[in-house]
Design a protein around this nucleic acid. Structure first.
Lengths: 201, 201
DNA sequence: CGAAAATTTGACATGACTCAACTGGAGTGG
DNA sequence: CCACTCCAGTTGAGTCATGTCAAATTTTCG
């Protein structure tokens, strides 16, 4: 007679996400449930700002976030967009408990599920499955970053833009081009020119 | 009466590396020792080539490696240099068991310590400390990559070169400028011009 | 509807690349 | 120990991709 059995819950999307890797049993779920907090985030609201220590793993249930850094000249550089069923966290800051250099900002009204460090460590110790799951999460983020870096070296702005459209077709409808330009590492003006060339072609 | 006690061993540099994070007891060491293999690598020898699955975590005891990708045009792009007391591994390929897109090549005669996947999983299960240690390794690699990506966006070639000199003063003596240029994402010719500007300044 | 943000456009500037030629060590073999 | 080759590094001319700035236009959202 476990509470979580058959009762729809706010954390269902998260359970489903974990089960993409590894089935969870009722015990696992019962450990997870009380350690996850749901939060509603408004558009333009931050869940992390430069200088703060990242306190949570944030799982996006719905909505969209950008993770970016502001350079010395005040220019924003988007590192990553995060949508449904992915994690919006400064992994480095979270684990090392260092002040973050990043901002994480909602681009749409969003719902997230948060797990703090104490609870995450508890899960690691008591349910090895989560341990494996979170390792895989970091590995995947690592691979994503690595591919992004390789692309930024070997591909032109146009190639990177086309790759972006192909990899995230939905996103390109959802977010302003300014933000895509920042992600691609080019100016909005230049992206505009690329787009013009695309239609005329 | 443990074997590893007080007997100098090939894996001492690795133990020392782990103990930067977390002390190991005799049990931990006795688990580790039989699972680590020492290998001598010649200059220009590969420990990973495109298309192969990365089978080991490779700890560099001494020597120097470059990790790079070859693009469609046949140009090499250095992602990372690895020297003493760091890991030269395609983390993505190792964990996902996918064919790698990368090459890992010795730039000097080198000595490495290898741990294969079976042994690593064994260590994870039997010594939670290693679990934490390897998680931290990935996290650090992740942060390193993230900083590199941010820099490639917001800094000019000159700024990146100066940052490289500052961050790896020893390396810049040790490896040819061609390789540094590839790491910085510029041509050797252009690096040469940057260096000229530096002296004349 | 009105203000603010996003996008487009054009003229001009520049950082970085390409290609080809030249320089100067560092082996290597005779 | 010299002559030869080979590779890394340098130089210069010309080109191209992308940036800057400023203004006009369109879209979005409160």
């Amino acid at each position: 007679m476990t509470l979580s059995h058959d009762i729809p819950s706010k954390i269902d999307p998260l359970i489903k996400h974990f089960e993409d890797y590894l089935p969870l049993d009722e015990f696992d779920k019962s450990m997870l449930l009380p350690r996850v907090v749901e939060r509603k985030i408004k558009r333009r609201q931050f869940i992390l700002q430069e200088g703060d220590v990242c306190q949570h793993y944030n799982f996006v249930v719905h909505g969209c976030f950008k993770i970016y850094k502001v350079d010395e000249k005040g220019v924003e550089h988007n590192i990553q967009f995060v949508v449904e069923n992915d994690w919006a966290t400064d992994i480095g800051s979270f684990h090392a408990e260092n002040p973050s250099e990043l901002y994480i900002e909602a681009m749409e009204p969003s719902t997230i599920l948060q797990i703090n460090k104490t609870d995450l460590l508890f899960l690691y110790v008591n349910c090895p499955k989560f341990d494996r799951n979170f390792r895989v999460i970091i590995e995947n983020k690592f691979i994503e970053l690595q591919n992004r870096l390789l692309q930024s070296f070997s591909a032109s702005a146009m190639e990177r833009y086309l790759a972006f459209l192909q990899q995230y077709p939905a996103l390109s409808q959802r977010i302003p081009n300014t933000q895509i330009a920042s992600y691609l590492g080019i100016t909005p003006e230049f992206l505009s020119k690329l787009r013009k060339d695309l239609v005329s072609k």
